[in-house]
Design a protein around this nucleic acid. Structure first.
Lengths: 394, 394
DNA sequence: CATCTTAGTTCAGAGGCGAAAACAAGCACC
DNA sequence: GGTGCTTGTTTTCGCCTCTGAACTAAGATG
């Protein structure tokens, strides 16, 4: 019942161009010949289209491969310097702005510390805009070369151009961050939830690479998930899908900071773990967690069990091909306990879907949020590589 | 990261033809003029394409509409007799075979009772094949007019041509029902889980109509869900997505017939409800449930709470636009308790996604499984209306 | 240097869509 | 009844895209 969508000859070209570009991007240096095989397009089409792309400098040659007794193939690749993407991570304690080339290599970055409870939207918007200028000049990149700015933020982001955000922990209720930023830049903007941008990063460049049905869970202070269906992030009707942390695993259980009871986050969020272990934090949660893990406290096993229940619910409901456990708590737990987590998940899920799922640890560090935000720009670029970009003064 | 898919000029035609046909199907009698507006296609294209469809008898004229001062519009509609679809419901106690025209009006049906614990796959395949012959001759339809056979079965159906089924309650583990049926017919076959076909029916013709992000839950002996993302059923990597009944809502809770503990089904499945209410069934579960509901037993309220938790988890995780409660237990509960169910759901879900969701009762009765199965055929027809159908002897 | 092999380009042809002109079919009003 | 007006549908024509096949390019081999 997907909505009807007419097509015209031009869409074909656009679509095939995107197909070609994606193939080129993900298969690395490739010859035209290979491209015909991989895309199913005719050699003629590949030839004319690559000629276009070369002419636009989106694609560049990358050496040759000898063949035994014939004309050597010329390798082609996406020009990593054709454009750049800015990725921004708006977090509790800092705003980080990174500049990435098309290969998602970080070219420059800058951090702005936030004083606790100073989450004035205007201030954050100013930090972001200043950060963009800084990374551009640091890397010697002009604004015209920037394809867009991706921003990962906490909370729920309304779909729509204004990037309206609801983030309880920030005290933001209906903050139009997108609109605020647009006052200071006319570059394309992409605002999304930080857990989702992290998920996107793991999906494209981390442990989730290649999976088309996957869940990337984020365990940290908060607990969330990115659900990937058919290769794209599933957002639900109002972009809030994936609020795994507040699904209930114990009806009427422990109170959670969301106001509910029995939420998964109330068992496996860092605060909940420390609380249940009776640890009074001295400020360094990572160290505290390491202490708990080393202590062989029964809380560890319980945590694994609860996490297993939460993961099993995903296995049963979503039937993913892969579950990636990310977030610093997730990685710290997983490093020593992954087999136990798998066991706990198996114990609580149906045999068929469990057998179809592999549970792995995330591979990208805490920079994944900014990287994923930049990936939003990359995604747009690969889907609709514009010939004429709207250039704009930063 | 959706897989690349090349396109050629011919695909456009196919796609636009499908767009046109879907619009025609769902917007009822429509003029060519309206179609240009609704589809976005040019008048020229609509004209030639409808001419084709009229020529193939897929579309027929349906009267005229006067206009004030101009040429009257000729109304067009999909010819409900262009073809027929068979829908089969394979249930615990019976096999039902129905014949539907393209408007999904039931033209004939036949039931075969199953002796308890007589779920021999061969027998069931024979029933289905016999049933097809019966409904065809009852309705005076020849096999050439049948577009396909849809079958709704319990359990997990592997993706693939053989329709391999794993259904614990049937004692089926790897039964290739599709292959068995293909021995007796060469009509196109579509085998799917019965909860999913029911979901499909509610989505297309019941309370879910028009929703593009939805969940249709089935409460009966078993408990399951159909997750609809972007208008189509979400299946996960091995077609088992939607096993909501065995998600855990009470870690380490009541034992469930799946072998696990604390499953939703162990609280809101009919057997669980009766068990918790201390009712020893005399065979008529519907009556038993009515008794429990009338008794004002605290079990009723508990059940509503547990159901609310289960639904809230869907709200948080999936963020659907609509949740349809179906299945006979669901409808029986919902008729008197829907407001309470909504309240219980609200109490356990986050405010934003809850506000975006409407929770409604299913509208289709127990025949929805067979109807939904037939809808699989319809869906195929609307997506790829073949000019030359492969006709086959039944 | 003739021949073989493989890679890439060019060209003609088929099929698709849209804009606009042409045609069709009513109404209204003199 | 004729003439113009309005609206719906069809036809014509030009442009775009893809593909298959012929053709060119570039190296290996003996």
């Amino acid at each position: 019942m997907a909505r009807p969508q007419r097509r015209t000859v031009r869409d074909i070209r656009r679509g095939n161009r995107a197909v070609l570009l994606r193939t080129l991007y993900f298969s690395g240096p490739t010859s035209r010949n290979d491209l015909t095989a991989r895309t199913g397009l005719s050699a003629a089409t590949v030839s004319t289209m690559t000629a276009d792309l070369l002419g636009e400098n989106i694609v560049v040659e990358a050496g040759q491969v000898e063949s035994d007794g014939g004309r050597p193939r010329v390798l082609l690749r996406v020009n990593p310097e054709y454009g750049f993407a800015v990725g921004v991570d708006v977090a509790e304690t800092h705003v980080r702005v990174g500049l990435f080339d098309l290969e998602m290599t970080e070219r420059a970055k800058v951090d702005y510390m936030l004083r606790p409870a100073r989450h004035d939207p205007e201030l954050i918007a100013r930090h972001i805009l200043a950060g963009v200028e800084v990374v551009l000049s640091d890397a010697g990149v002009s604004p015209e070369q920037v394809l867009g700015i991706g921003v990962g933020v906490p909370g729920i982001v309304e779909p729509g151009a204004d990037g309206v955000i609801h983030a309880k922990t920030f005290g933001w209720d209906g903050v139009p961050l997108g609109a605020l930023l647009r006052r200071g830049t006319s570059l394309p903007l992409f605002v999304d939830n930080g857990a989702k941008t992290m998920g996107q990063a793991e999906l494209w460049f981390g442990s989730g690479r290649g999976a088309s049905e996957a869940v990337i869970v984020l365990l940290g202070v908060g607990v969330g998930a990115t659900i990937v269906a058919d290769g794209t992030t599933f957002r639900g009707v109002s972009s809030s899908a994936g609020e795994w942390g507040h699904t209930k695993i114990v009806a009427n259980g422990r109170p959670c900071r969301c106001g509910g009871r029995g939420c998964l986050e109330a068992y496996v969020g860092i605060e909940a773990i420390l609380d249940r272990a009776g640890v009074t934090s001295r400020g360094d949660w990572e160290e505290d967690l390491a202490g708990v893990l080393a202590s062989k406290s029964p809380v560890v096993e319980e945590t694994v069990t609860y996490l297993g229940v939460g993961l099993a619910n995903l296995v049963n409901l979503i039937n993913p091909e892969k579950i990636v456990i990310g977030g610093w708590v997730g990685v710290q737990l997983g490093e020593s306990l992954l087999p136990d987590i798998r066991r706990a998940t198996a114990a609580n899920s149906l045999a068929e879907p469990y057998a179809a799922t592999s549970i792995v640890l995330g591979r990208l560090g805490p920079d994944a949020v900014a990287l994923g935000a930049a990936t939003l720009v990359l995604e747009e670029f690969l889907n609709a590589p514009q010939v004429a970009r709207i250039t704009a003064a930063g």
